[in-house]
Amino acid sequence: MTKAISVSGLHKSFGRTHALDGLDLEVEAGEVHGFLGPNGAGKSTAIRVLLGLLRADSGAAQVLGHDPWTHAVEVHRRIAYVPGDVTLWRNLSGGEVIDLYGRLRGGLDTRRRAELIERFELDPTKKGRTYSKGNRQKVALVAAFAADVDLLILDEPTSGLDPLMEEVFQRCVAEERDRGRTVLLSSHILSEVEELCDRVSIIRNGRTVESGSLAELRHLTRTSVTAELAGPPDGLAGLPGVHDLDVRGNRVRLQVDTGHLDAVLRSLGASGVRSLTSTPPTLEELFLRHYQETR
């Protein structure tokens, strides 16, 4: 089995709202997969379908090789889930909840539990009501990272964590990957995604609009180039994939579809390059482009 999650053409409506409208998602075993999209794109709905909490109207979903709706219990034994907003029982301590979640999954590594509690600086004796948002999140994260499972499904898991804890979280995810586990990470924190994810899927309006490695995604976008030339440029305007061309004397600024970068550089080289800066698209630009198209 090489696919941890395999979803195709998933549809789910609530009344007149189409939360999922033909979603596709492939997560390879052993990878950290970023799951991105603007608010309301259907990320959480998709995750709830993957957990068998919601039943898809149509389409196929396989999680760890099984249908998550009909084989929920077997699948869940090998999954740890962290929701974006953790609610705890007011009169149970954090430690009790961690152990409960562990036993409800495939079991808990007690050494790792102790280590994680220390790293996340969590007080496990406090009762549910007295935890802050960040600390409630830590309870679920410790339970998930200490669990003996194959797949982690994390739905905006770091909301409420401070930057130090965010760093601990990133190290934990990297460790999970090194141990050969698969992680599906839904997140809005792009540096986190850039740091951790092997591949990402971007969804919009319940549909996958882009999927691949970050390098592949970058390839589909524009690179900005600024150059100072020996003489005036020639023939740049006629090249395919060139946008926003701005020539002032020997100075050139342009945007080029990354796939056509080679031809542009050749043309610039013909005029003699004195200095050149080429900026690949930032992840922010990548996402802004996709997110903004919703509006």
């Binding site: 007011r90 009169n91 149970l92 301590s93 430690g95 009790e96 909840v97 961690i98 152990d99 409960l100 036993r103 409800l104 496990p124 004796t125 406090k126 009762k127 009501r129 007295t130």
Partner: peptide
Amino acid sequence: PTRPGPAHGRLGTA
């Protein structure tokens, strides 16, 4: 006020 609880739990089933 609520008192602290145990650091380890015995609950293991729904």
